[in-house]
């Protein structure tokens, strides 16, 4: 019997950048019927409302959207291996999952230097149901980031993402890029990276990245598809 795939935020919602060539208009789409089906299949109907899970998905996609707005496209593309190794080696997905968890738990959406506070929070029990949904890799690595946050190291979580982006942008210019890619191909790269950097943090201050000029992609529209 195959193991269930688990909860993937991107199955229930998607973010389309303005540079995407698709048929749909750029923005965030939430597939509410899929959210509803997922909840009823799992038997969580009485304990988790579709709009609550949809809010989580929205927060996840919003984190992607902010990253799109903050990072130059070519740098982002360099670490975005989805086409070649779908969902496997990316830190962006667990990071967005972590950011969404913080939105529903603390009412705070923080992505790198961008921070939104005072957002609606979900009840603790509802949060716990969403947090505890099993997730495939790399989404499951959000737990490592969440643990860091509980250890009082949220700043470090942001720095880890910076380090991840930075390493790509730097290695892009060098011949050692291939070596780094080999490291990336380790199955537990996200977890490994998070733990290594958290344990022996060597990232420089954010000032070093001031030359990474954002290429704004907003405004975006949130669309709910039923």
């Amino acid at each position: 019997m195959p193991e269930p795939v688990g909860f993937i935020a991107d199955v229930f919602g998607l973010f389309l950048c303005r540079h995407s060539q698709g048929m749909l208009k750029p923005g965030i789409y939430i597939l509410l019927n899929k959210v509803q089906d997922f909840i009823s299949e799992r038997g969580y109907g009485e304990y988790l409302r579709p709009e609550e899970l949809a809010y989580f998905v929205l927060a996840h996609e919003a984190a992607h959207m902010i990253l799109h707005s903050l990072l130059p496209r070519d740098i982002r593309a360099s670490y975005y291996h989805r086409e070649h190794k779908p969902f496997k080696y990316e830190l962006e997905e667990p990071f967005c999952e972590y950011a969404a968890c913080r939105v529903i738990k603390d009412g705070c959406l923080r992505v790198l230097s961008f921070e939104l506070t005072g957002l609606p929070r979900l009840p603790e029990n509802t949060c716990s149901v969403i947090f505890s949904l099993t997730r495939p890799l790399p989404y499951a690595y959000y737990t490592s980031l969440f643990k860091m946050s509980l250890a009082g190291l949220d700043d470090y979580v942001q720095k880890i993402l910076w380090a991840y982006v930075w390493s790509h942008s730097v290695f892009k210019e060098r011949t050692v890029k291939m070596t780094f890619k080999k490291v990336l191909e380790r199955l537990v790269i996200c977890d490994h990276l998070i733990k290594t950097l958290a344990g022996n943090f060597g990232v420089k201050t954010l000032d070093q990245f001031k030359d990474l000029m954002p290429e704004p992609c907003y405004p975006y529209v949130v669309r709910v598809v039923i």
Partner: peptide
């Protein structure tokens, strides 16, 4: 407390 909070949110039994 942080350990227990983490486990109670994620039910991460392996952890």
């Amino acid at each position: 407390r942080p350990l227990v909070e983490y486990v109670s949110y994620t039910a991460d039994i392996e952890f």
